[in-house]
């Protein structure tokens, strides 16, 4: 029996590359690349590692986002995923994590049977880590988050994972079907292959809107259905600029720094 794996991924702006205009206090977005979210590339890699061992494994990557997110799905297929599905619709816009998980859970149900869902722990633009567990709740399957080691038994049913904790780890056993959210310690993502890039361009990526997903645009997805709303948003205020220590030598700079710290009674 061939294993069916779903990978949940998100196309995100590379938040490391974002800067703030120091005068206008607005985000400078120009030239910020869109990338496959880091944790999600570990999710995909773990699925691909299973496929390396069991080549008849079928991997479907699912994402929700604007039409441009297709580029990311193509990248995932160029790495070795079999199919990609894009959930995209103006009616899905403004979804919070609860509504997003409704849309993705609906997409996964439409894809059909699955054994394992891998999702990145969190996306670097929102950093919530909520969508994975919320999809699992809606599909009524068990979950393990912060997975840093994964092992699938030969019976293709029993799974053992190592879950990272702040002060150590735990070893957890569970069975398919399940949701596992991945962190970067799990593996090292591979690059796209030349033949993969070639093949992926020929593949068709279906786009499913609210109608295809059969979700209620009033109650399940989109801004109005989302239980949380943005009340206000703003940029953090910068602290006033401090003192630049100028000295003729490193030694003198160090001394001046220590005098200042001492005068503040912090050392």
């Amino acid at each position: 029996m061939a294993l069916k794996i779903i990978v949940c991924a998100k196309q995100v702006p590379d938040t490391n590359e974002i800067k703030i205009d120091p005068i206008k206090k607005t985000l400078i977005r120009e030239g910020v690349p869109s990338i496959l979210n880091h944790d999600d590339s570990n999710a995909l890699e773990e699925a691909l590692k299973i496929k390396d061992i069991y080549p008849d494994t079928y991997i479907t990557v699912v994402t929700m986002g604007p039409p441009q997110a297709k580029d990311m799905l193509i990248e995932c297929m160029a790495k070795g995923a079999d199919a990609g599905v894009l959930a995209s619709d103006r009616a899905l816009g403004g979804s919070d994590t609860w509504a997003t998980s409704n849309a993705l859970a609906a997409a996964i149900q439409k894809i059909g049977d699955f054994d394992i869902i891998f999702a990145g722990r969190q996306a670097i633009d929102g950093d919530t880590a909520q969508v994975g567990p919320q999809i699992a709740e809606k599909l009524n399957i068990p979950q393990v988050t912060y997975v840093e080691e994964f092992e699938l038994d030969k019976n293709m049913k029993d799974i053992t994972v190592k879950r990272a904790l702040e002060d150590g780890y735990e070893i957890i056993k569970l069975q398919t079907p399940c949701m596992l959210t991945t962190i970067k310690e799990l593996n090292v993502p591979r690059y796209m292959s030349i033949s993969g890039i070639f093949d992926s361009c020929k593949k068709d990526i279906p786009t499913w809107g609210a109608k295809e997903l059969n979700v209620d645009v009033e109650k399940e997805v989109g801004l109005d259905a989302s239980p949380t709303n943005v009340y206000r948003s703003f940029t953090p205020a910068g602290k006033g600029k401090g003192i630049m220590i100028e000295a003729d030598s490193e030694r003198e700079a160090a001394q001046m720094l220590l005098i200042n710290l001492k005068s503040k009674h912090v050392i």
Binding site: P13, T15, I18, P227, N229, S233, T235, P236
Partner: peptide, 15 residues
Amino acid sequence: PAFGGNLMATIICPK
């Protein structure tokens, strides 16, 4: 913090 800390957002749960 949202957007990698570039933006702060205040969120409510009104309903």
